[in-house]
């Protein structure tokens, strides 16, 4: 008889943890993009929104919770990937997708790579907008002039290029991940799956497309304003 494993150490428990943190991160991303859309309302609205967030005393706690989701998601997926690699020591000489009902896509086959890219992106992203990168500007009404910082960052074509590629990677990760997370949590019944699968892809397009539009807006119109 096999030894009893801890709930989150078993193959099913690992899936649950990855799926749960995945769903939470998708919800966070949706809130994040909704907030970022305020940029279209101009510098005053955007900086006021940013200052409201940054001056909230609960922010460090929220950030800590968010960080824990990222850490758990990344740690469990990397460990799971490495353990899965050992499950087939001799590779097939010829292997292809079975087609038919499969959900296998380029996105699903590259989850670990898109995930690791996003991890690298996050380090740059947090450094640039959370800690501040380069010249920092004060906003007269309070807080930082993050609108100006965003416009200046995206004036650089290298930054815009890196950002757009990273957002396409986010889209790819969510193309499989957003719906897959629900399957991992046990939510798969024919009536639900008919909604969950296309909804996951719609979220991927919405999130990636939304962030890309903001970056392009900042690049082409931001410097003038």
């Amino acid at each position: 008889m096999a030894p009893r494993t801890g709930i989150f150490s078993s193959s099913v428990g690992t899936k649950i943890l990855i799926g749960l943190t995945g769903v939470l991160l998708v919800v966070y991303l949706l809130i994040h993009i909704a907030g970022n859309m305020v940029v279209f309302l101009g510098p005053a609205a955007f900086n006021t929104y940013a200052f409201t967030l940054e001056s909230n005393p609960l922010l460090p706690l929220v950030e800590l919770v968010l960080l824990s989701w990222f850490v758990i998601h990344i740690y469990k997926t990397v460990r799971n990937f490495l353990s899965n690699q050992t499950a087939r020591p001799v590779a097939y000489q010829k292997k292809k997708s079975a087609g038919h009902t499969t959900r296998k896509t380029f996105a699903s086959s590259t989850m670990i790579f898109s995930g690791l890219w996003l991890f690298a992106f996050l380090l740059v992203h947090v450094k640039a907008f959370h800690d501040g990168w380069g010249t920092q500007y004060e906003w007269p009404a309070g807080g930082r002039d993050l609108y100006r910082q965003e416009m200046e960052t995206f004036a650089n074509p290298v930054m815009v290029g890196f950002y757009i590629i990273s957002m396409l990677v986010v889209g790819s990760h969510l193309w499989h991940g957003a719906s897959s997370a629900f399957q991992s949590l046990g939510a798969d019944k024919p009536a639900w799956t008919r909604v969950i699968l296309p909804a996951g892809k719609a979220i991927a397009v919405l999130v990636a497309g939304g962030f890309i539009v903001i970056a392009l807006f900042a690049h082409f119109y931001g410097v003038r304003s």
Binding site: N80, S83, S97, T101, R103, H176
Partner: peptide, 13 residues
Amino acid sequence: GFGSCSNEGECEA
């Protein structure tokens, strides 16, 4: 030594 599931559904196919 079996692996985990990535929800690709190749098994079902």
